[in-house]
Write a protein that binds this DNA or RNA. Structure first.
Lengths: 402, 402
DNA sequence: CGGTTTAGGTCAACCCATGAAACAAACCCA
DNA sequence: TGGGTTTGTTTCATGGGTTGACCTAAACCG
């Protein structure tokens, strides 16, 4: 017999552990503060005493996790507060993304702001995985070099991939033509001189994480739907990314919409992807040279092309059906349309809402929100870079003891 | 900006807090042990020292959470160990369930064993919620009285209800004919003399919890599908019940299977319920008097009635489609067929497996399990009783400070 | 310009949980 | 019966956090 929550500390806590627990508590308080916060405010906020706060703050300052931002004069009598806020120097995260229209790299500092963002348009359709990853490795090198000049140290790099990943192995990424590619090992080989640990994760998961951070406390549970050559989803419940048993959650593109519908390359029939991915919306119309699927669809929709508008309507309906399943199963009240869908949201949201209101059992007595994502196509790179930041944020002690 | 996991301690940890953390650690170790465990074994297992263990054990003994089970002579030299195991006296949980065929009450002790199980066949179709809950209150009274004689103290009662619940309010339970019934308040009123706090929760969620406990460490992520007059699901991921934003997760019965299919009372079309619930499988055939829908279906299937077998086939297909959505979205690898489905599993599993293998993207490289649940129709009552136990197990300190 | 007010640091004394080492208890075996 | 062995307990030292007092720094106010 087992307790239903095995995710508790398995290690005993000694006095020194107590110190690190309180250190993390203080650090979280600084993170959560909307503006620089003083030591005294921290003391009242956390319940710890000022001497303890002072000691912890000293430790955080020494570790480059926070900085003193100078005095704040708020007009009141008395000595002004010394503001403390998250440091914009020190540890940083590197994100890498393989998009439908090119490669992207991005560095984010501890405060969550993007300090470097590079994009290289490229068609990797004719290249193999090693070539693509070598190019990404080059971009990673310049990103690290550029941000090192600003006193940033990249601690982890995360690669976003459109498809299920497990332990660095990309099981299947049809958009890239990859099957069982060990992207982790390849990228690790190409970046050996940089000495940065590499992680590989699903693109939609990472984008969801990016949106979570960007939402600034207002969102804590949502489904991020990523539209592109395929369709993926990142599910965040109570501020926590749901990864599933093996990290393969969010395969929304293969949710069955019409059981006897169009055949899908995956072997099934009626998958959402066959109705709502960009190729499906484009039907058989070819994409003009020097354009991208994203641009082609928005261009035709803006021009009022009836076939495209009809395709967008079927896509919206299919998305609505699939999302109503997600909501009935998980009870989540917010849907973010990301990737290419963020550009197409004005043609999709109404249709999706109609389906949700009809099909979600609880929609009758609790409203649902459907809206475009904030970060647009950069969500995944930014989210990838944020994973490193997230780890430090949750376990600052690990960084201090590096 | 926020850390992605807000579920961390918001309170500072002082020395006493440290003690309770280690107390919980030790308690979990005793829970996880397959047999009575000695103080020294606890010391080596947890990493704490023997003196600390002794003090903590003393505290647990005083609080009636564990008991000494006598000396174990294993033939080796040295002083014999004093076995420690979870107490079968002290705190207990009370579960109440409104089933399609009657009312059930159950008391479970800290070890997770059922100490009292009562069932009252009843047709509440013609009665109102107050009458049903008054009867349940009577059953609760006798259950508490009976187990008090065995030194058990019921700390919380949990009512299982087939439908979405929020804060004691039953939003909609078509199987009972309830809509917006404040079951929590009604039951609280009827049990005022018992002075036991009341919780109300979804039946499928509770049954999933029951199965989780009954599985004895072998299961940690699964979907429990509860078949009956409606269809619900309880989702357990990594030993944790997924409740969703408002606790309305698992509405599997209203997942869309055929978008343009049969109309459902909920207002949508093609819901799973309209193909796989017991009424759907029975089609228009009336249930004989003095029988139940469960018995009618199994009887006809056993007899080889072609219409029933065909209906079971459509039900299995529909279940497979809906479950493939769940798995594509959540990446869970085990499905437990519960409620009436546990009795019907021999007619359902093959069909369900076929659909899953076709429609789940990752099924190609990772196997899925579909099998009947262990506890049968009592899963929900037992699970309901276990919620109280679960709380004590996760936060034994709260019980000690009662 | 000096008094007041607030932020922050520093120092003692104390509390309390854990760790280390010594000690008592209860078994085996010869 | 006595030595060896393992278990559980007692005693003392350690160390972190708290409380409280006292002090300095830096603003406002009359």
């Amino acid at each position: 017999m087992r307790p239903s929550s095995p995710r508790q500390a398995a290690e005993p806590v000694r006095q020194e552990g107590l110190r690190s627990i309180n250190l993390e508590l203080v650090f979280r308080h600084i993170l959560a503060a909307p503006a620089p916060i003083s030591r005294t405010e921290l003391a009242t906020g956390t319940g710890l005493t000022r001497p303890t706060i002072s000691r912890i703050v000293e430790e955080l300052l020494a570790g480059n996790l926070i900085t003193e931002t100078g005095l704040t004069h708020d007009g009141r009598a008395g000595r002004p507060r010394v503001g403390l806020s998250i440091s914009d120097k020190g540890p940083a995260g590197l994100g890498l993304d393989i998009r439908s229209d090119g490669l992207a790299a991005c560095v984010v500092d501890l405060t969550g702001t993007v300090r470097h963002l590079a994009f290289a348009p490229s068609t990797y359709a004719d290249q193999g995985a090693p070539a693509v990853l070598a190019e990404l490795a080059r971009m990673a090198g310049t990103a690290i070099e550029a941000t090192a000049a600003e006193d940033l140290t990249v601690v982890t790099a995360t690669l976003a991939v459109p498809g299920p990943v497990d332990a660095g192995m990309v099981r299947s990424a049809p958009a890239l033509g990859w099957r069982n590619v060990d992207a982790g090992a390849l990228l690790r080989g190409a970046t050996r001189h940089l000495a940065v640990p590499i992680t590989v994760d699903n693109e939609a998961n990472l984008a969801a994480l990016g949106e979570l951070y960007a939402s600034d406390n207002t969102l804590s549970s949502f489904v991020y739907v990523s539209g592109g050559l395929g369709i993926g989803a990142g599910i965040v419940l109570d501020g926590q990314l749901l990864r599933g048993v093996r990290g393969w959650s969010g395969e929304l593109g293969h949710v069955t919409v019409y059981p006897d519908g169009k055949p899908c390359p995956c072997g099934s029939r009626g998958c959402l992807q066959t109705y709502a991915s960009l190729p499906a919306i484009l039907s058989d119309e070819p994409v003009p040279p020097h354009s991208t699927p994203d641009a082609a669809v928005t261009g035709r929709a803006d021009a009022g092309d009836p076939a495209t508008l009809a395709a967008l309507d079927t896509a919206g309906t299919a998305l609505g059906i699939a999302l109503s399943d997600v909501i009935n199963i998980l009870d989540i009240d917010t849907v973010l349309l990301g990737g290419a869908f963020s550009l197409l949201s004005s043609w999709l949201t109404a249709t999706i809402r109609t389906e949700l209101n009809q099909r979600v059992l609880t929609a009758a007595w609790a409203p649902l929100t459907v809206r475009p994502a904030q970060l647009g196509p950069d969500a995944a790179v930014i989210g990838a870079a944020l994973t490193a930041i997230d780890q430090i944020r949750q376990h600052p002690t690990a960084w201090l003891l590096r």
